[in-house]
Computed example of a mutant assay.
Amino acid sequence: METGPINEGLQAAVEVLMEDFIVERRSDTDTFREILNNEKTIRRFVTENFGYQLKIDSDQAKLEKVPYYAREWMGIKEFRDEIDYMFLMSILAFLEKKQPEEGFLLSDIIEETKQFLYNIQLVDWKKRQDRKSFVNAIQYVTNLNLVYIRDGEIESFEESEDGEVLYFTTSLIRYMFRNFSKPIEQIESIEAFLMDGLDTGNPHHTLMRKLYFEPVVFFNELSEQEREFIARQRNYEIIKKAIEVHTGFELERSLKCIYLIKKERKRHLKQHPHYNNESYIVTQVAKELSDRLSVMQEKPLELWVLSDQEFEDVLQKAKRKNELAWPNTLRQWSFIEYKHMVIQYAREWKLAEYNDITWEITIYPTFIRTIGEYHEELKNYIAMESGGNE
């Protein structure tokens, strides 16, 4: 078990490798230097704990990481439709054949896309919406720095199918594509894609992949092997120490779940609570939930279940008490929009589960672990502006 002072450079390097697709020397010199300085330690950490591979050359570093589950929040936020992802796959298939600094025209990649999607997806290139989806996909690839524009503007293609652009690939093209144990066309499901290269009989690796890429892991989500592994105090202490030393996260365990926390909030990390309005609002709802649950029948080893009406009462109370301090855009939300946001957020962070059939909401203990209130001066102002009525 590793001891000694915390290596902040090591933690920063692991954090960026876990969060980013690739680390370039020229765009993030400090992090790249820390990766090189701690290369052996990082390799040992990711190999022993996740079964991941670290690739490094003189200009870039990439951690080939795959989560255990595919979750909705892992999608590309710039994409809105399934066809956006289809276009992305066709673009990547085209780029896989290219060498670094090789040029090609937009019309070339469109022709390749037509063949790639033939008999898979009907595309009407005369429709602006379909062209817009294609533009979304190729702009995403450009933002990843896999290609760059030498001449022309991609926005012109959104306006007219006759628009032309000259692209060139970058050296990152060599690092885009993951190696599989067999031809990709033989991988027939998302599950098979995620499990490729994973030793599913190694509970250390499977547990760590779940733990690091899930907001919380409930014990009923673990396999028997994983439950037996984590139940051994020595194993628990080993992974707890490894996480704290290499990542700066802390491992916590309750009667029903295990999860990672980072007490220091960072804007570039997706954490709960985060520095956004939705997160603040959810913590305010958590405060009202905490008050409501405190007077309900105690069920220390169970979950709380609220009816739709009970949950809406909590939402209404949180809204009345806090909305005067919300940004104007959120104050203009309808109650349905507000409720949908809270439910969606709670689902993504595994704070609660909403039953779309019974309309009941199951509250996990993690929901009320972090509660939010405005400071006293602001609360007094809200009370005065609202006439003292909640």
Rank of each mutant, 00 (worst) to 15 (best):
Q60V: 15
I230K: 08
N389T: 01
Q53L: 13
D356G: 03
F193T: 09
I239P: 04
D130Q: 10
L207V: 12
F87Y: 11
V141C: 15
I343H: 05
N143I: 12
R292A: 11
D356S: 05
D196Y: 04
T31W: 01
E48Y: 05
E161C: 03
H340T: 13
R267C: 07
Y275P: 06
K126M: 03
T247K: 13
L378Y: 00
E8P: 00
F367Q: 01
I357M: 10
R128K: 05
S133R: 15
E191W: 14
H272P: 07
D196A: 02
E360Y: 07
R369E: 10
P183L: 06
L172C: 10
K97P: 06
M1D: 06
L315N: 01
R331A: 11
S189D: 03
M384I: 12
V285N: 00
N37Q: 10
L207G: 09
F229R: 04
T247H: 13
I371R: 02
Y140A: 12
V165L: 12
E64W: 14
L211A: 13
K263A: 09
I6T: 07
H204G: 06
E34D: 14
E64T: 15
A93N: 15
E111G: 14
D356Q: 08
E39K: 14
M195K: 03
Y140F: 15
L251I: 14
E310Q: 11
Q344T: 09
Y354S: 01
Q11S: 01
A286S: 11
L251F: 15
L17P: 00
R265C: 12
L172T: 14
I35F: 12
F311H: 04
F218C: 10
M86Y: 13
G103S: 08
